[in-house]
C-alpha cells in the first residue's frame, strides 16, 4: 500500500489507485471532463493535470497510478492557467446556446466554465458544423456539442459490449461516429446518454420536457425484468418526463432500453381511469362503490352456490410484495380458497 502526499496531506492507498482517486479519498477536488469512475481512464481532456515532484511536465491524475512517496500538487498558478487554456479551447469549439440546451444546469462543461469564469475566448475560431442525421427514435446527437471525451465510446464497448461507435477521422475533424459511418447498430440502452458530460447526447423523449427547475426526482425500482435496477423518475407537473439511474446504485447507473426509455406508458391516454361494469356486452363507467359492491355480491353469490374453490385468483409479478401478500390473503382468508397463483411460469 503506497503512501502519497497530495497538497501536503498524506494517505495510504491500495496499489494501483490513481492520483485522482487518491485525491478524492482526501476530498481534494480536481476538475475532470473525460474521467468516469466506472470506465477505464482516458486522459484526453487534460483538465485533471497535476504536478508531481520529480516529473518535469504536468501529468493527468486520472491515468497516473500512485507510487510510494509520491508528492502531488493539484493546484498551482501554472496548472490552473493550463486548465483555463484547455477549457477555453473546448469552448472555442462549442455552441454558446446553453439557454436552450437540454443539459443546462446539469452540464459538466457549463459548470467548469462557470468556475473558471470564462466569458471571453482568446482562441475563438472555426467551429465544427454538422448536419443532423438521426434515424433513431431514442437518442438525439448534437455533434457540435461533443467534446470528444470518449465516454460514450468507452461505455458502449466496455460496459455494454456493443462497440456501436468509435472515434473517426483525425485532427480537428475528429468525431464520434459509427464504424465507416455506416448504419448505427445499437441496443439503445442509452448508457452513452447517461455518461455524456455535455448536451451532445440526450434522450429524444425528454427534449423540452423540463431541465432542472421544478423537477422532482424520485428513486424507485424499474418495472420491467427481474433484475430490479434502481431508477430515478424525474417528475414535472405530475408527469414522468425522464428516467435516469444514479451511479451509486447497485446497478451502477446502467439501464437497458426499456428501463431508460420505456416509461411513456405511465402517462398514456389509454390508461384505465374509472371502474367499468359490462352490461349487455358494453362497458359502462361506474363509481368505485358500485363496482366494489357488485364484485362482493357476485363473489359471495358464487361462493355460496359452488363453494370457495369455484373462485380463482391470479396475482401479478408486477405488483408489489404488499399487494401480492394482500391478494393471497384475500383469496385465502376472505374467500377461503387456495386457488391463487401468478405468472411466474409464463
Amino acid at each position: 500500500m503506497p503512501k502519497v502526499t497530495i497538497d501536503g496531506r498524506t494517505i495510504e492507498v491500495p496499489t494501483g489507485t490513481t492520483v485522482l482517486d487518491a485525491a478524492k479519498m482526501l476530498d481534494i477536488p480536481i476538475p475532470t471532463l473525460c474521467y468516469h469512475p466506472k470506465l477505464t481512464p482516458f486522459g484526453g481532456c487534460r483538465l485533471c493535470i497535476v504536478e508531481i515532484k520529480g516529473i518535469p511536465r504536468p501529468v493527468t491524475s486520472c491515468t497516473t497510478p500512485v507510487s510510494e512517496g509520491m508528492e502531488v500538487t493539484t493546484s498551482t498558478p501554472q496548472i490552473e492557467d493550463l486548465r483555463k487554456t484547455v477549457l477555453e479551447l473546448i469552448l472555442s469549439d462549442h455552441p454558446n446556446d446553453c439557454m436552450v440546451c437540454e443539459r443546462a444546469g446539469d452540464c459538466t462543461l457549463q459548470e467548469l466554465a462557470y468556475f473558471y469564469g470564462i466569458r471571453e475566448n482568446r482562441f475563438a475560431g472555426e467551429r465544427r458544423i454538422y448536419t443532423k442525421r438521426d434515424g433513431n427514435p431514442f437518442i438525439e446527437r448534437d455533434l457540435e456539442k461533443c467534446i470528444l471525451c470518449g465516454r460514450c465510446v468507452k461505455v458502449c464497448d466496455e460496459v455494454q459490449g456493443v462497440g456501436a461507435i468509435d472515434f473517426g477521422y483525425r485532427g480537428f475533424k475528429s468525431k464520434i461516429c459509427t464504424p465507416y459511418e455506416k448504419d448505427l447498430d445499437c441496443e439503445f440502452c442509452g448508457q452513452c446518454v447517461a455518461v455524456c458530460p455535455t448536451g451532445a447526447l440526450t434522450g429524444k423523449l425528454w427534449a423540452f420536457k423540463g431541465r432542472q427547475k421544478d423537477i422532482k426526482e424520485i428513486d424507485t425500482v424499474c418495472p420491467y425484468c427481474g433484475t430490479g435496477c434502481n431508477i430515478t423518475l424525474h417528475i414535472r407537473r405530475n408527469e414522468v418526463v425522464r428516467v435516469t439511474s444514479r451511479e451509486d446504485t447497485w446497478n451502477e447507473g446502467w439501464l437497458c432500453v426499456k428501463g431508460r426509455f420505456g416509461y411513456k406508458f405511465i402517462s398514456s391516454s389509454d390508461r384505465l381511469k374509472k371502474p367499468l361494469i359490462k352490461r349487455n356486452g358494453q362497458f359502462e363507467e361506474v363509481s368505485w362503490d358500485k363496482a366494489l359492491d357488485y364484485i362482493a355480491e357476485k363473489l359471495n353469490d358464487i361462493k355460496s352456490k359452488y363453494g370457495a374453490d369455484a373462485i380463482g385468483g391470479l396475482s401479478s409479478a408486477r405488483c408489489t410484495n404488499e399487494e401480492n401478500y394482500l391478494f393471497q390473503k384475500l383469496m385465502r382468508a376472505a374467500i377461503g380458497t387456495n386457488n391463487v397463483d401468478h405468472c411466474a411460469r409464463l
Partner: peptide
C-alpha cells in the same frame, strides 16, 4: 433470472396455490 420485476416477491408473498407466504406449505 426472474423475468418480471416482482416474480420473486409474488412467490415469496404466497401467491402460489400450495404455499402460504414464505413458501410455507398449506
Amino acid at each position: 433470472l426472474r423475468g418480471q420485476n416482482n416474480v420473486q416477491g409474488a412467490s415469496d408473498a404466497g401467491c402460489l396455490p400450495n404455499v402460504y407466504p414464505g413458501y410455507q406449505r398449506v
